[in-house]
Design a protein around this nucleic acid. Structure first.
Lengths: 141, 141
DNA sequence: TTTAATTCCTACTATTTTAGTATGATTTAA
DNA sequence: TTAAATCATACTAAAATAGTAGGAATTAAA
């Protein structure tokens, strides 16, 4: 599955942004210090978050990033898919020779991975950024 | 998350084994051909499956592997954890400096990953090997 | 008794992905 | 003018993944 520290960093950074959202633009330097993530790495991550319109940037001194939409509206799935390209576990389709395109026992496990994907995506769809910052207790929906 | 082609191969191979379980030991050569997985790689995978008592081996000519227990009793989680060591996404605990051990905003995302793990594991706990071979339609439990 | 088919064992290696560095340009508040 | 910030791109180190390679041991069958 595509779920790496990059995705985790993105979620952490967005949560940080949400926590400080009333104090104007938050610089990546601040986030870097608070969350202990390399500044240059954060920059790369935020380019992607910006491209997906999850944050907007304020350039120049005293600049930084602010949430484009409110924490209640931002799903974790939005964040992760923004930086990790795809939330897909292991689909047979990619590798045409193996798995699915196999003649004899054609993709016995195909549906399994499909459903797993749905299952995981479903989880990330339900959790909002707000759920993280509010109480640090997520949900029992 | 620890969920790689090794895990997928293992599930595919086990499903293959389940399909042919009435025809005596199934050789890895056969599985290799049917599922298009390198023989040597399968060998490594089956050592692990054997260590976890999911299969047993029959050595020598006409040998191969057979399921140690019935497909109804084998959970997908058993298979994956046998070959991929751990079904854990991204826990903060591992990396002591980052994430959790951060003073200011202590592990905002900790619970999120914990619950994700539970969610995924829960999925794999519910699906049995039998569910794969029976109808190629998994479940709606 | 020989042969071929098989598992078993261990070490090595190529490839890919991940995570991160490095460098510098651009923008803008103070 | 300066310092603090984003923006952009290229490079690289480390780790994980996905295999390969080479042989030893076992056993059914010819």
């Amino acid at each position: 599955m595509k779920l790496t520290t990059k995705g985790r960093y993105a979620v952490m950074a967005m949560a940080d942004l949400a926590l400080f959202k009333d104090k104007g633009p938050t610089s990546l330097t601040d986030i870097s210090l608070r969350q202990n993530i390399s500044l240059a790495y954060l920059e790369q991550i935020f380019i992607k978050l910006k491209n997906k319109n999850l944050v907007k940037s304020v350039r120049g001194a005293k600049g930084g990033y602010v949430l484009e939409i409110s924490p209640e509206e931002i799903k974790i799935s939005n964040i992760i898919s923004a930086v990790d390209e795809e939330v897909k576990t292991l689909n047979c389709k990619k590798e045409s020779k193996k798995g699915c395109n196999n003649k004899s026992s054609k993709c016995i496990t195909h549906n399994l991975w499909d459903q797993l994907d749905q299952h995981i995506n479903n989880f990330f769809e339900k959790v909002k950024l707000q759920d993280l910052v509010k109480k640090n207790q997520i949900f029992n929906k």
